[in-house]
Nucleic acid binder design. Structure first.
Lengths: 196, 196
DNA sequence: TGCATAAGCGGAACGGTATTCCGTTTGTAC
DNA sequence: GTACAAACGGAATACCGTTCCGCTTATGCA
């Protein structure tokens, strides 16, 4: 008789739950350092578990990659609410877009895997859009309602623009994207409070 | 009897030359059936040779992929001249663009490899453009000069448009691309013979 | 034609990877 | 404390790219 409050998804035993978290953390770090082609053994070692444990939690290698991606998307989406609670609307939007570019930069390594044609990755773009577009929309609406930025800008467009800015030229300085993004936000501030 | 006409590139022995051709043909077929990740052993078997023979001709797996890609590009480019000799200018252009979409569809499997970041594939896009753009330009010029289609259309733009049309929506019928392409060509015919 | 020779060949062997399997350990309910 | 199933670790398995080397054979020459 277990209490019904826990979703059935969660593993039963406490150590299993702990290992799952360790694995996701380790995979994130290893993927960032060695790319998504890093051996499963490396991730298992970093997490302090055997490869068998990896494969019980993630039957296929791609399942682990998907889980890491979703975790990153979730973290980025959650950051929107936190920033909205902590800063004035326009600044929250600005800070979140900086945060979003970090996500895109981290996703860079995963991008080739996502485009590999493996059906395992097919639902990921949908997940990405379903989570991040509403986050962006919420921040945008608050800033517009507060009269801090102009109205008439679509959330999806802003997301795409931010992604584009992450494609920096060959030898741009590390904070190039940050500066371009700041410029973009200032552009939004221009003409604030006026009707479309 | 052409003695000196062969470039020094060609392998010395007749059987080596034959095996090279068999390998390219086999690789094309296997890649089409099983994707570019197909095992080298499969290709060797299909060609009726041992893996050692594959690796003498193509030291790296990627070299074989590159060779197949170039062969396809060359075949597509050569088709332009053949069609130009056989059909009236506008029809030659139309047929070649159909032919080109077949190439793009076949390249689909290779596309992921090309975008994998492996430096071995870096020169391929340049090769692609150097071969296919002039082919398109030649067909286009003949059709314009004959007054069969309008002028002022850039060869590169038409190539890109054809590629875009190959990105069919999820469940398009198989000949969707063909029909869209025909529409595009008819558009070119509109206003033919008039100055820009 | 027959021979010498090196170009070319086949496939076993090697190193490295994902994935599976199973004996052992350990968290948890009673 | 005990029983037992869940979970674990890592050796074993299966495959893949690439290398290596003894064997085969096309070719130039007498």
């Amino acid at each position: 008789m277990k209490s019904k409050t826990k979703p059935a998804k969660a593993p039963q035993r406490a150590d299993a739950q702990r290992n799952l978290e360790m694995l996701l953390k380790a995979a994130l770090a290893v993927f960032a350092k060695s790319g998504v082609d890093a051996p499963v053994r490396d991730i298992a070692q970093k997490a302090g578990v055997g490869v068998g444990t990896v494969y019980r939690h993630f039957p296929q290698r791609s399942d682990l990659i998907v889980a890491v991606f979703r975790q990153e998307v979730d973290a980025c989406a959650d950051a929107a609410a936190e920033l909205a609670a902590k800063y004035p609307p326009a600044e929250a939007l600005s800070r979140w877009m900086q945060r979003f570019t970090q996500f895109v930069a981290a996703k860079r390594g995963l991008a080739t895997a996502l485009h590999s044609g493996d059906p395992a990755y097919e639902p990921l773009p949908v997940y990405y859009d379903a989570k991040l577009r509403p986050a962006m929309a919420m921040l945008l609406k608050r800033a517009v309602d507060a009269g801090e930025i102009r109205e008439g800008v679509a959330p999806g467009d802003l997301l795409s623009a931010a992604v584009s800015l992450c494609r920096t030229p060959y030898d741009a300085s590390p904070d190039h994207t940050q500066r371009m993004l700041a410029l973009l936000i200032d552009g939004l501030r221009y003409g604030a409070g006026k009707p479309a």
